[in-house]
């Protein structure tokens, strides 16, 4: 690449790295999060996602176009990407902050990736029943307007027993537990799925989602089944974020302590 070309690219993209753009994108996001949350209280999560959180453009009163959260987040993502290239101070002393910004980049990028690739299904079984067929759930919950799509899972699952227990003398549930048998190819094994303790199998994860009783002693258990190949992305991003913040603040603290205590001073 020639010097000239480089300069052109730089001239094109440098404004994208502007701090002012960061503030604008963040302000947009703040406003949209507030509006979406208030809207959600009145109209439910599905409507709020459709209108605010998962939208590119919001048509106010049907005529006035406003940016949706997806647009604002994309803007912030591009801004952050450009900033990492053109603006962030690459110096070891700023290592913590750099790590934080890279972590954020990965967190947002991972979020986009997961939104595009992850699938969620719902599976309800009565005790003794087994199935491979799960209902497809889209991002906003099971679709009501058309028949939910059925999907064949690569794992067979049979509900052996469902158990719930309450704190003594109350209606406060203590735990929900499903004992299941999973079949893959020719092998079988028993497994337990309970609240906060999902079952993982390859890229699939089975969560205890709800239950029902038919009043005649029969119980059924509902699992949500998520297939998510990018599942580990937010974890790595979180680790970077955490590490970056820790490095940055420990550094700040050390500097502050060095400055503020020139000689042995005592507690007031």
């Amino acid at each position: 690449m020639t010097e000239n070309k480089k300069r052109t690219i730089s001239r094109l993209f440098r404004p994208l790295a502007s701090l002012k753009l960061t503030v604008i994108a963040l302000l947009l996001m703040a406003g949209l999060v507030i509006a979406g949350t208030v809207y959600q209280a009145a109209n439910g999560l599905y409507a709020a996602q459709e209108k605010f959180f998962a939208s590119w453009i919001i048509w106010l009163f049907g005529i006035l176009p406003l940016p949706g959260l997806l647009l604002a987040a994309t803007l912030l993502f591009l801004n952050l990407l450009a900033a990492t290239i053109f603006r962030l101070p690459y110096h070891w002393r700023q290592g913590g902050l750099l790590l934080v910004h890279y972590g954020l980049l990965l967190l947002m990028g991972g979020g986009f990736f997961i939104a595009l690739t992850a699938q969620e299904y719902s599976l309800t079984l009565r005790e003794g029943e087994s199935s491979r067929l799960a209902l497809r759930v889209d991002e906003q919950g099971i679709q009501i307007d058309r028949r939910p799509e059925k999907v064949v899972l690569p794992v067979g699952i049979k509900l052996l027993d469902f158990e719930k227990s309450m704190h003594p003398g109350t209606g406060i549930p203590r735990s929900f537990t499903s004992r299941v048998e999973i079949t893959t190819g020719r092998t079988k094994r028993m497994a337990v799925i309970s609240m906060n303790r999902p079952l993982r199998y390859r890229e699939y994860t089975f969560y205890q989602s709800s239950y029902s009783e038919d009043g005649m002693g029969g119980e059924s258990s509902t699992f949500s089944v998520v297939s998510n190949t990018g599942r580990w992305l937010p974890y790595i991003a979180s680790a970077m974020l955490f590490l970056g913040l820790a490095v940055h603040f420990l550094g700040m603290l050390a500097a502050a302590l060095k400055k503020s205590r020139p000689r042995g001073s005592e507690m007031p």
Binding site: L45, G111, I114, P198, Y207, S209, V226, N228, P234
Partner: peptide, 8 residues
């Protein structure tokens, strides 16, 4: 617990 990192 639920299989989603973020749920609005």
């Amino acid at each position: 617990s639920w299989g989603r990192f973020w749920g609005w």
